[in-house]
Design a binder for these strands. Structure first.
Lengths: 211, 211
DNA sequence: ACTCAATACTGAGCACACTCAGCAAGTTTG
DNA sequence: CAAACTTGCTGAGTGTGCTCAGTATTGAGT
């Protein structure tokens, strides 16, 4: 009667391979950017055959999702934490910007990877595991934006949620557009801030209504 | 002394090939969607070698741009025309929606092609010819949105332009997201309308401010 | 008409993401 | 322990977008 461990030799070997693959992808993507790395290189670095690699991930994009999800989740955490500190003192726009700031930094830390990540998030199959994980984080973030909007502007929950969705769209397009690729982080933040200011009433600087 | 026609045999042959290529691409993309067609098929249909195809377009995405640009420009025209008719009577949101409507229809007429088109528009190299043409149309459209916003809400030009940029972002993400792929045109329009309503003050139904 | 430089055309070939039939290793059963 | 079964691993192979060295065509000069 051999013990029936859920952690048999096989399971351990698989877990190990999965680790090696994510580690290899993380390192290579960080060094060369997602489209400067071939799946073969990742497989070599992880010391598995390409066939094996594709038993663990369905597609190269999924690898990008896996790697970026971690960074993204962390950025969302930091945004929510720092925003809650600023919530009572700052203006609505500034609190929202505090929330966005780490996410902007995360995406632009390695622009090539960040843009692919955002694109895959909206364009890819939401049913796929890692995509779903990323969408969950995005949703967590959007909800945080919604609650800030609601608290700081007194908007109805419904309207606040929609405003948060608009903020997501603004951030997505601004960070994805090739036109803004050369811009500095400071400029990007200003472009986003200007748009958020128009969206949120009571903001200083760019009210939509003239009077 | 042979006549030095700017339309020599060579120039004519090239113009003809260019026509055949765009025609082939248009037909095949319409029938099978951009990613249901190989560049080889297009080359065959146009009766040129693949090498030749890639002397006329740098990339397959460029072919998509070429084909969709025509439809897009037409949709922008129709939007501007019908919106100017409705401009005096309807609410701000409805005038903007009138402006958007043909564009939404154009993108969703063949969802696969439309999504690729939008993605390439923001993600691709803006210096490339056909991409630049598409961006010019997008800009024409965004300007029309801006002037409607300005006229109907009395916003400052600056704020109106920013609001129009936000509308672009809303439309882009809504039409691009896989999540909305299965939605009907009517649902898509409602999703966009709800967001535009929150963006534009004085709209009925979804004011951002509670009071 | 002939030569020759310029340039357009061609398609075998390359790089890269991804597949799958055959194999090996682990696990269960007798 | 051995046989039977299950399941993960492998890498040559495939499809596809795109390249580029070699070839053919054009048109200007003489």
């Amino acid at each position: 009667m051999t013990s029936p461990p859920s952690t048999g030799r096989r399971a351990r070997a698989m877990a190990d391979k999965r680790r090696r693959i994510t580690d290899a992808a993380t390192a290579l993507f960080a060094r060369n950017g997602a489209d400067g790395v071939t799946t073969q290189q990742i497989a070599d670095e992880a010391d598995v055959a390409i066939g094996t690699l594709f038993r663990y991930v369905a597609t190269k994009a999924e690898l990008v999702m896996m790697v970026q999800n971690e960074k993204f989740a962390d950025a969302v955490d930091r945004g929510i934490r720092t925003a809650s500190l600023a919530a009572s003192t700052a203006s609505p726009v500034e609190v929202v910007m505090t929330l966005l700031s780490p996410v902007i930094g995360c995406v632009r830390e390695h622009p090539s990877n960040g843009r692919i990540y955002l694109h895959e998030l909206v364009f890819g199959d939401p049913a796929e595991e890692h995509r779903a994980e990323g969408l969950a984080q995005a949703w967590r973030w959007e909800s945080a934006v919604a609650s800030v909007v609601q608290q700081k502007t007194g908007a109805a929950p419904d309207a606040a949620a929609t405003a948060a969705r608009i903020v997501t769209a603004i951030v997505h397009v601004t960070l994805t557009a090739t036109l803004h690729l050369a811009a500095s982080d400071e400029e990007i933040r200003d472009i986003i801030r200007r748009q958020v200011s128009v969206l949120l009433p009571g903001a200083t600087g760019y009210p939509l209504a003239a009077e």
